[in-house]
């Protein structure tokens, strides 16, 4: 049985994770009820975390879970929590035939462009020794190579916090 070799099993696991991710994304995009859409999003994030783990980066996988499932999804749910849970998204009265017909070629064009880009880019050579999720290396690169990006992101977060405070103040007095 070729399925039961380590490579075969790894392939099966990868396909399973990819299907989970895509299914989650599909639910998130098509669900009529907001709670289900968020649950689909969380499922997609879990699948993505699984793919990161599969690619031997447990640190990124766990961060994906901690931040995207544990924080982003919870924040989204919290934000729309006060909406009536039973309400379904109103079906639009517009005809969907033209957008559907247009979306296929546009999507195909986009996919084709991405594939061309992915195939022709000079990707950096994969690291010789796969990093076993070592936080020391990640810390070093965050504070040396990527320190600029790191600081910029923290400025964005600071602005978000100040913005939230300003908005909250306004309601109070």
């Amino acid at each position: 049985m070729p399925m039961l070799t380590p490579d075969g099993l790894a392939g099966l696991i990868f396909i399973f994770l990819a299907v989970v991710t895509l299914a989650g994304a599909f639910i998130a995009a098509t669900a009529l009820r907001l709670p289900r859409a968020v649950a689909g999003l969380a499922l997609g994030f879990c699948g993505l975390a699984g793919i990161f783990y599969f690619l031997n980066s447990p640190f990124v996988a766990l961060m994906e879970l901690l931040i995207y499932v544990g924080a982003v999804c919870v924040a989204i749910v919290f934000a729309i929590m006060l909406a009536d849970p039973g309400v379904e998204k109103a079906r639009t009265a517009r005809s969907t035939a033209i957008p559907a017909a247009l979306s296929l070629p546009v999507g195909a064009l986009f996919a084709w462009g991405l594939i061309i880009l992915a195939r022709n880019t000079m990707w950096p050579a994969p690291a010789a020794k796969l990093n076993p999720g070592d936080t020391v290396d990640i810390g070093h690169s965050l504070l040396t190579t990527y320190s600029m990006v790191f600081e910029l992101i923290s400025i964005v977060l600071l602005m978000a916090i100040i913005g939230a405070l300003v908005l909250a103040r306004k309601g109070r007095d």
């Binding site: 640190f59 766990l62 961060m63 499932v69 544990g70 999804c73 919870v74 919290f78 929590m81 999720g133």
Partner: peptide, 20 residues
């Protein structure tokens, strides 16, 4: 190696269960 992080990553999913 990141066991501590793993516990917190999964613990954060717990809230989602309560919410859902």
């Amino acid at each position: 190696n990141v066991g501590l992080l793993m516990v917190f990553a999964f613990a954060s999913v717990n809230v989602l269960g309560l919410l859902v």
